[in-house]
């Protein structure tokens, strides 16, 4: 099968019967955004600004054919999150993998950020970073309610886990008592 990708297929509008007979510049739903005064200057033909020399690693969308003239240099990719980000940039902005990998990288970055803090001997005050002081000042009842719910839920969870463990231990003892050979056979008795 021949591929459409390899054959030249340019169509010259001048050769098309009826070309432009219904063209109407008023039919423009982008009014007043698109100023069209510079007529034929289409495409990437503008007089570019000076180019910034990247001094840190800048990831580039595969949809760009070149780096833009200015670049953001905040937090270049680093660590495991950086590796995931680099991987994500193999895919286009149109590909879900690009964005899902970046979201995964963001979560990894959060963990790395925490480790980074600890490595610098800093224990981050997470409640303060989350603005707990504001909640205390302006939503005290809500904050207490939230804290109470968290306390009750975690207490219940701990209780449940403990009980489950106790039952499991009893079950095991019971099983051992009931089928001594069997349990000896798979060598788990002790």
């Amino acid at each position: 099968m021949a591929s459409f990708l390899t054959k030249p297929q340019t169509v010259d509008p001048a050769t098309v019967k009826g070309w432009g007979v219904d063209a109407d510049p008023r039919n423009d739903p982008t009014y007043p955004y698109r100023v069209r005064s510079d007529g034929e200057a289409r495409g990437m033909t503008w007089d570019r600004p000076s180019l910034q020399k990247p001094r840190v690693e800048v990831l580039r969308s595969v949809e760009h054919n070149r780096l833009p003239a200015v670049l953001g240099t905040s937090v270049p990719p680093r660590g495991a999150s950086g590796a995931i980000r680099r991987g994500a940039f193999r895919y286009s902005e149109s590909d879900w993998r690009h964005w899902l990998m970046l979201l995964a990288a963001d979560r990894a970055d959060m963990v790395e950020g925490l480790l980074d803090d600890l490595a610098r001997g800093r224990l981050p005050n997470i409640p303060a970073e989350m603005g707990v002081r504001a909640e205390w000042r302006h939503n005290r009842a809500g904050l207490i309610r939230k804290a109470a719910v968290v306390a009750v839920v975690s207490a219940a969870a701990i209780l449940l886990l403990r009980r489950r463990r106790r039952y499991r231990r009893q079950d095991r003892e019971h099983a051992v008592r009931a089928w001594p050979e069997a349990s000896m056979q798979d060598g788990r008795r002790s």
């Binding site: 698109r34 100023v35 289409r42 503008w46 007089d47 570019r48 600004p49 969308s61 949809e63 833009p68």
Partner: peptide
């Protein structure tokens, strides 16, 4: 200066974002 800025689309400049088009 770019195609988009010249049309007044300053929110869509093509010379300012390496990571996304």
């Amino acid at each position: 200066r770019c195609h988009f800025c010249r049309q007044g689309l300053f929110g869509n400049c093509h010379e300012a974002n390496a990571e996304a088009t």
